[in-house]
Nucleic acid binder design. Structure first.
Length: 287
DNA sequence: CATACGTCCTGCCAGC
DNA sequence: TGCTGGCAGGACGTAT
């Protein structure tokens, strides 16, 4: 599932092949992936030349030569596939949006489930758009004190807080679950009950997990592929996510799966003790 | 304001 | 063999 490390891998892959190339045509095959209506999108993009490709949170950001941006949120199954490359890309099975390039190449946004969204952000609106997202967890300014402040301001279960893009940008379920396992914090712990030592462990764990996942090219569970078609190699490094019923790599107790906030979380019941006292009264927290 | 929950969308897989 | 139901889950809209 594309989270920060997957978006980073995709951005780096595209940054090697797209800058300097011009868009000659846009065709929208699946209008529901368009966060900007098709006609204005095409008007804004056709004739523009790509600049650097970067990332903000889970979004791949394609700069244009007029300082506008194409922002791609990959959702669950979105892929960006450059055409006419040295290596043949994986076939596009569910193309949603096609960019024809002036040099004969192409860029395809493919999305099986169509949870992804593509928008055009004019230069004048970029800062405002970016401000809606929380800080970058791998950024220099994301210190332990910053995370501690974010935690202190919320009573939400810490796993839910980590998924909230307005508070921290780029973290999804896989890396939230993994970081909490490393930090030995129960995913349902109310955020403001995490003490400074726990916040410090979580800060370190989160950054370490994300950095390692970026280095491994992300996590492929099923759909995710880098632009070159390669799978992410971080799956084998997962310690808790998706491992219900298997031994905790740290203490050998069996990993549990719980559900809250409509999502699965995985934890070691021995390493990650119960959330302090009563805990959240959410229905359906059976395991 | 903060928090919680339903919804979208399709493919895959276990179970019968 | 073919069907059904559960699951994956990011982000947004609505409700409390």
């Amino acid at each position: 599932m594309p989270e920060l490390p997957e978006a980073e891998t995709i951005a780096r892959g595209l940054d090697r092949v797209l800058p300097g190339r011009a868009v000659s045509a846009v065709s929208v095959l699946r209008p529901d992936v368009m966060g900007t209506p098709a006609a204005p999108f095409a008007r804004a993009v056709v004739g523009r030349r790509f600049g650097p490709v970067g990332r903000r949170g889970k979004n791949v950001v394609l700069e244009l030569d007029d300082d506008g941006r194409i922002v791609v949120n990959l959702g669950m199954t979105g892929r960006l596939i450059p055409g006419a490359d040295p290596h043949p890309p994986p076939p596009s099975t569910h193309p949603a949006l096609l960019f024809a390039l002036a040099d004969g190449g192409s860029l395809t946004f493919d999305d099986v489930r169509r949870f992804g969204r593509v928008v055009h952000i004019p230069a004048a609106r970029w800062r405002a758009w970016s401000r809606r997202l929380g800080p970058e967890p791998l950024g220099r300014s994301f210190t332990g004190a910053v995370l501690g402040g974010i935690l202190a301001r919320s009573r939400s279960p810490v796993r839910s807080l980590l998924l909230d893009q307005r508070r921290i940008a780029g973290v999804g379920n896989i890396y939230a679950v993994e970081a909490l396992w490393f930090a030995r914090i129960h995913p349902a712990t109310p955020s403001n009950r995490i003490d400074p030592a726990g916040a410090a462990r979580l800060h370190r764990s989160l950054r370490q997990v994300l950095r390692r996942a970026v280095a491994a090219g992300g996590t492929t569970l099923r759909n995710y592929r880098a632009p070159d078609g390669n799978e992410g190699r971080f799956r084998r490094a997962l310690h808790a996510y998706g491992r219900a019923g298997r031994p905790c790599p740290r203490c050998r107790a069996l990993i549990e799966r719980i559900v809250f906030g409509g999502r699965s979380a995985f934890l070691c019941p021995r390493c990650q003790g119960e959330p302090a006292s009563p805990g959240p009264t959410s229905p359906g927290t059976a395991s």
